[in-house]
């Protein structure tokens, strides 16, 4: 009785390893998810800043940090190998556009230009919608 318990206890790390490795091997999946989430956070920050709910120094620091995260994600998606070139390119270009829009938002908030910030928010939303679509296509095809 107790020896079975022991053996199953030893199996746990193996199980955990197996569980863990299958979800983290997909860099593209992880990075596009991260990009989508970060883009949404950027939109929230711009909203907050435009409505005066977020102090400028916080908004620009947050956007700078998000733009950095997006830049990293962008680089990783660009360099990831893939079998389907067309679908990967759609994903790549969407991540790239999100990254550019976030950088534009950061600049606008830093310069306290409301109009450019609104524009950047719109770009972010559009690029984000494309990213979601490209993501669905990419993984629908993979499975």
């Amino acid at each position: 009785m107790s020896s079975i318990a022991w053996r199953s206890l030893l199996l746990l790390p193996v199980l955990a390893l197996a569980l863990a490795s299958c979800s983290s091997s997909e860099t593209v999946e992880q990075q596009s998810k991260l990009a989508a989430s970060t883009a949404e956070a950027a939109v929230l920050v711009i909203d907050a800043w435009l409505s005066g709910a977020a102090p400028p120094h916080y908004a620009s620091a947050a956007l700078q940090s998000f733009a950095g995260t997006l830049g990293d994600a962008d680089r990783q998606v660009q360099s990831a190998p893939s079998s389907d070139i067309a679908r990967r390119d759609a994903l790549k270009s969407a991540v790239g556009r999100v990254t550019i829009a976030a950088a534009a938002a950061e600049r606008a908030v830093k310069a306290e230009q409301q109009i450019q910030a609104r524009q950047a928010r719109q770009d972010l939303r559009a690029a984000q919608a494309d990213l979601a679509a490209a993501y669905r296509q990419y993984f629908a095809q993979q499975q």
């Binding site: 998810k33 991260l34 989508a36 989430s37 970060t38 949404e40 956070a41 939109v43 929230l44 920050v45 907050a48 709910a53 977020a54 916080y58 620091a61 947050a62 940090s65 998000f66 995260t69 984000q128």
Partner: peptide, 18 residues
């Protein structure tokens, strides 16, 4: 709002601002 990956502390204040 689609912010699922909270791994940047700058995202945290967004919880209460809205």
């Amino acid at each position: 709002h689609g912010v699922t990956e909270v791994d940047d502390y700058n995202q945290l204040p967004l919880m209460l601002i809205p």
